[in-house]
Amino acid sequence: MKPSNNQADTQLSKQLSNQLSTQFGTKLSDSLLLPQVATATLELIINKALSLNNKSLSFATVAQKTLMLELAELSFPLCFTVDNTSSPVVIIVRSTIECSDCSIKTSVSTLKKLKANQSLTQLIKQDELDVSGDIKIAQQFANIAQSLEIDWQTELAKHLGDVPTHKLLQFGNKITKSLLATGKQLEADISEYLVHEKRLVVTSSQINAFNQQTKDAASKVDSLSARIDKLVANIAGKQ
């Protein structure tokens, strides 16, 4: 006989509560409420960024959906829920294990690779990324993050004034350009070394072989020299 919906719900709740009993353990980060400090800070930053955004963003497909991110570097998960019950739309950040429509288990370094457009499937195959649930939700969250368009100059000018903001951004642009140029030069030098010069550089096995050959030649010269000395001595004895 199939269990009724109520029985199934009850069983699910029991399983969840068992998981939560573990969560209710005495972890130091829990006692210090570090996950709550982190989620409150993240929530503030994300919603501030959303309020400064100039581009219209569509949240319809992710309304009330939750994305869970488990980073190897963090001892607690991060859950992002889109709330569209009030205007403007806000994103709520929590640290809980029983909330997600899509969950991603990964590390910060893998997220950087994802940003650098490394193939998603390749990272999953390499076990660097574990996705469960509706992957479209993760993609839509990523799209929203990439679509954010914030006019930092206008926002900064509201606090600092027009002239200091202009000077600050000019200085910032100069530094950025110089850093980018240095980076590009470094990248070019390294790639030139790898493509051209690395081929010409003698390897350690080649050096070892050369040393061995030199030793062999020296011992041959020594034995030849000894033979010549012996012959010279024989000739001198006969005379």
């Binding site: 939560l20 409420l33 709550q36 989620t39 409150a40 809980t96 909330c99």
Partner: peptide
């Protein structure tokens, strides 16, 4: 201000869903 974190912890532990 810590009461905000205590309440956040409560929300996290509640497992509330849409």
């Amino acid at each position: 201000g810590i009461h905000r974190l205590w309440k956040r912890f409560t929300i996290d532990a509640s497992g509330v869903r849409p």
